[in-house]
Design a binder for these strands. Structure first.
Lengths: 205, 205
DNA sequence: CTGCAAAATTTCAATCCATGCAAATAGTCA
DNA sequence: TGACTATTTGCATGGATTGAAATTTTGCAG
């Protein structure tokens, strides 16, 4: 029994998984998402079409192969918080952490970081999936935030806080997609949206 | 040429559309969403399967048949605003207006208002679609809000405001779905989340 | 090294959503 | 009525997804 899962079997599975991701993202980039079939992806990764589904539940999922790790990182920020850190400060750090999804990949080098982002924004199916995952992650974060500050934040306050900050950042980034040319500008927009929300919308205008 | 579209042709189309919606929602309730096929819906509405797609673009869309009207109502709140009304006040009213989606149907009586809500929350495909529409509507609202207060709110502020309020309300309602038994409790939760966001998250905790 | 058991892959078939196209129908209007 | 246009329909097709059974690969004990 391999405890760390480093046997040949496990290594092979990782290789196949990686091959599927690389093949899929390359083909999506070359031919477009809708135009690429699962059969083509599987063929490019040298497995049968059926095998694709033992690695990913759907065609969309392969694009978000690293989302689980991302989520854990965000929750880890909560676990590592300083004793005197306020909820607002922690939220700031979580937003920063989460924004790295835009610019970094987990273990692949061949991809332009902005490529996946553009793909997700262009394809309705991927957009919907992304919104879904974002929502689920927010729900988890809200629970974790309440658990981290059980005396300071009730469940509704925690949910409102997480939802507000991420809602603001999401909408601000995406409505400024046209204006913000570079990733750096997007970061600036996101930070500003977060600060506006933390300060309170009543003070606007 | 019938200008108001009150000819037989138009009336028939409305009847077919309504029949499709009623058949679909009834079947979804009786057998479940995934278990209901388009063929069954079409048969129950006495049209061919192919015809379904000249009324709705997808199986999911039939559930959100009234979303366009809802959106227009929300934007109308902006148009009807008082000269001295602050952005925060308008946002409050828009949230109130939007929450009615939870409790009201446009023209159908056979449905329990909570039925569709539960359906959407249970089915991942519908949830994703709902999040997508919610997002698109927020983007439109943000643009409209900026247009309504061009001097007070720049595009990022408008987007942050709309995203924050709706993000907070959405997450607060959905994470409290288990706790809030009645629609009234959900309303209360939503209002509280909106107020928290308007006051600013820094004051939390 | 050999064979067994578990895990993974493949093959094959089936279902369903969705779409394009051309034929058939039905409503509109002079 | 008869031409004209909007709708509906039937048919064929492509592609995602899933289940079951057959086959191969891996891990491991003897």
């Amino acid at each position: 029994m391999e405890s760390g899962g480093v046997g040949l079997r496990e290594r092979k599975k990782q290789r196949t998984r990686r091959a599927l991701v690389e093949a899929a993202l390359r083909l999506f980039d070359e031919k477009g998402y809708e135009e690429t079939t699962l059969a083509e992806i599987a063929a490019a990764a040298d497995v049968s079409t059926r095998t694709f589904f033992s690695y990913f539940a759907s065609k969309e999922d392969v694009v978000f192969y690293d989302s689980k790790g991302r989520m854990e990182q965000a929750v880890a920020v909560l676990a590592d918080r300083q004793p005197d850190e306020s909820p607002a400060d922690v939220l700031r750090r979580i937003v920063d952490e989460s924004l790295e999804w835009l610019t970094t990949y987990e273990e692949f080098t061949f991809e332009d970081a902005g490529l996946r982002l553009r793909l997700v924004l262009k394809e309705p199916a991927l957009q919907a999936r992304a919104l879904m995952m974002l929502f689920e992650n927010q729900a988890r974060l809200a629970r974790a935030l309440h658990a981290a500050y059980p005396d300071k934040l009730d469940p509704v306050e925690a949910a409102a806080a997480v939802g507000a900050v991420f809602g603001a950042v999401k909408l601000a980034i995406l409505t400024n997609m046209d204006t913000d040319r570079s990733i750096e500008e997007m970061w600036a927009t996101a930070r500003r949206a977060a600060e506006i929300t933390l300060s309170g919308l009543c003070s606007l205008g």
